[in-house]
Design a binder for these strands. Structure first.
Length: 437
RNA sequence: GUGGGUGUAGCUCAGCCGGUAGAGCACUUGGUUGUGGUCCAAGAAGUCGCGGGUUCAAGUCCCGUCACUCACCCCA
């Protein structure tokens, strides 16, 4: 080592990265998810990593910590980039996208979008500043059929069931049920109640009661709110009605919820469950809401979430464009398995065959052999120098390459191939050889 | 943003009551001539996060700072 100064590489908190072995698995996941989305007819869309800040803030809620863009060399007066921010989810960019390409799209527009998003939060386990979301949304003019509210959980179920991950449950609720119920109780600020009840799993009944008392609710109001939040599973509609609260919005929400659940009745029991404690914070959702978590570790956070929103794109176009969407938190799920050592490492490299270069004179022949194998569909690399044969094989071994190819060491000699796992070696013809014995 | 923990070779860490750094793994080379995963031998590699202070002397004590990490908040 020289006495040159070195910039010590340190991990940047909240920006995960993987070894090739692990990345190989992640790529398989991505392929699987993509195929799952496409099997339902959703089309892929990709949007820039940045949006205008006023687009990102269109919701009016500045609760998200947005990373903004600026050039290092920009002089103090130059704020030409200051209006750009990295997107913190894919729904807002999607809404903008739909408004912008309105004329070119066919509705209802069904798209999937798998991209990284950025949030300037304090990272910790399962929570990142850069992570990948796999989003599917349906957006339509004026109204979106309720069938889509049921189709999205079905897609998620199909996709997640194909991945080797711990047991999870997708909880479903409907904002109208909560809001209608609270209104029926005469609560002044239903949103505040939704926020409080959303914390039920963490702070318990007493904690929620305390907050609600602070909001000025009476015991006669708080008790039904807590009772509502406890309702879960089959029979939710009847149980809610049994609480005796009446409101038009509540009834509407119950009917929607019942419709969705009924549509999903064929899924394995326990995979998609009605849970009236799910509220989804203060997001833009107005109807159906989804939230999935691991059964054995619900505190880890939601691994998949979404819902229905009325008119999200309304900020960008003078049309009513409601939608329903759901997002799989790929990074959060994947990182948990990586941390727990549950990812069975994939290949270090995609190479099927490594061709040995016997010596400088035979290199051209080795390259030709590599080309032939490649044309036949094998991922083939020709060793990068003329090191000792032992070194070359060792390299293949470390890289987990299953076959090492030996071109003739002398003009006119025979090719040989070695099965690294078995340690067996024999003559072979590169024009017809295949690893299946 | 608030509070706690940690910061020593590429990685995981040790370093007792202060006396100018160690292990394992990884890496390089060798164990001769065309063959890996084991073994043996040798070797290379450290601004002890950074800055300041106390001291004859600091990785070791004190202060500050940065980074990482955990909890809260919030969320995928």
């Amino acid at each position: 080592m020289s006495d040159q100064r070195v910039v010590r590489p340190t991990p940047i908190s909240g920006f995960p990265e993987w070894t090739p072995q692990v990345r190989a698995v992640e790529q398989r996941w991505l392929d699987h998810i993509r195929a799952g989305f496409e099997s339902f007819g959703f089309a892929s869309v990709e949007t820039p990593s940045v949006e205008n800040l006023d687009v990102l803030m269109a919701k009016g809620e500045t609760s998200q910590e947005v990373y903004t863009l600026h050039r290092l060399q920009a002089d103090a007066k130059d704020d030409s980039d200051a209006r750009l921010g990295l997107h913190f989810d894919l729904t807002v960019p999607f809404a903008r996208y739909v408004a912008q390409h309105f004329n070119e799209l066919t509705f209802p527009f069904k798209r999937y979008q798998t991209q990284r998003v950025w949030r300037g939060e304090r990272p910790q386990e399962g929570r990142f500043r850069e992570f990948t979301q796999c989003d599917i949304d349906v957006i339509n003019v004026d109204s979106v059929p309720l069938h889509f509210d049921a189709e999205l959980p079905r897609i998620v179920h199909r996709v997640l069931s194909g991945l080797d991950i711990p047991a999870w449950t997708l909880n479903v609720n409907n904002r109208k049920v909560l809001q209608g119920f609270y209104e029926g109780l005469g609560v002044k600020d239903p949103i505040a109640v939704i926020r409080a009840v959303d914390k039920l799993h963490k702070i318990g009944d007493d904690g929620v009661r305390e907050i609600l008392e602070g909001e000025g609710l009476t015991t006669e109001q708080i008790d039904p709110c807590l009772a509502l939040a406890r309702i879960r599973g089959a029979g939710v509609v009847e149980e809610v009605r049994a609480l005796g609260v009446v409101s038009e919005l509540l009834e509407e929400g119950l009917e929607e919820l019942a419709f969705v659940l009924n549509d999903l009745a064929d899924l394995p029991e326990g995979s998609v469950v009605a849970d009236l404690s799910i509220a989804r914070g203060l997001d833009y959702y107005t109807g159906t809401v989804y939230e999935a978590s691991f059964d054995d570790d619900p505190g880890y956070g939601s691994i998949c979430a979404g819902g229905r929103y009325e008119n999200l794109a309304g900020q960008f176009i003078r049309k009513r464009l409601p939608g329903v969407g759901i997002s799989i938190g790929l990074t959060r799920i994947f990182a948990k398995l990586v941390a727990e050592g549950r990812i069975e490492a994939g290949r270090v490299c995609p190479t099927d065959v490594m061709v040995v270069v016997p010596n400088a004179e035979r290199r051209a022949d080795a390259l030709r052999t590599g080309e032939l194998l490649r044309e036949r569909g094998f991922n083939t690399e020709v060793f990068h120098s003329t090191a000792k044969v032992g070194k070359q094989i060792q390299y293949a071994s470390k890289r987990g390459i299953p076959f090492v190819w030996f071109p003739p060491f002398e003009e006119g000699g025979e090719h040989e191939v070695k099965d690294m796992a078995k340690g067996e070696q024999g003559t072979a013809d590169p024009a017809v050889w295949s690893p299946a014995t």
